[in-house]
């Protein structure tokens, strides 16, 4: 089991390997976050879904074979907002550049991966992306009020 670090500023962090098995670690991480900040079941559900969608996308589509793959997750809480920063050393990818499909595009015609991004965009309070020092850094905010 991957070590989840609790920091003195009340944030949590975990470093995951960029492989499918890491997806199974997310439930533990979400439980830790949920317990630490007393999240209700709706917010735990949202947090789990967002992390699973983002990290699955990185693991399945975000790496080539030439590197040591890792994903780092750092979470902290400010009032009613949870900030989660997800960084990885994979191929540069900004999900904000993926246009949301117009309503008239039928759901069954949307490409694989697009639905997960659609969920992330709709469930997050805000999303920021930058590519810095060879890393994708995606920051999402979740409103828990």
């Amino acid at each position: 089991m991957t070590l989840i670090k609790k920091h003195i500023d009340n944030s949590l962090s975990v470093k995951l390997e960029g492989k499918k098995e890491s997806i199974y670690e997310l439930e533990n991480l979400c439980e830790e976050i949920g317990d630490l900040w007393n999240l209700n079941s709706k917010n735990r559900f949202t947090l789990n879904l967002l992390l699973e969608e983002i990290i699955s996308n990185i693991i399945f589509y975000g790496f080539d074979n030439s590197e040591a793959k890792y994903i780092e997750v750092v979470a902290n809480k400010e009032g009613d907002l949870i900030n989660v920063q997800i960084s990885d050393n994979g191929i540069p990818f900004n999900m904000l550049e993926i246009e949301s499909k117009p309503k008239e595009v039928k759901l069954e015609e949307k490409e694989v991966g697009g639905l997960g991004i659609h969920l992330v965009k709709n469930l997050s309070e805000s999303i920021d992306y930058m590519y810095q020092n060879g890393k994708n850094v995606l920051t999402i905010q979740i409103n828990i009020s």
């Binding site: 559900f45 699955s56 759901l107 694989v112 639905l115």
Partner: peptide
């Protein structure tokens, strides 16, 4: 209790 986009896709495929 929980479903994600991969799960939703199973139903899209079946409906098609």
């Amino acid at each position: 209790e929980y479903i994600n986009s991969s799960g939703i896709r199973v139903f899209i495929k079946l409906q098609k």
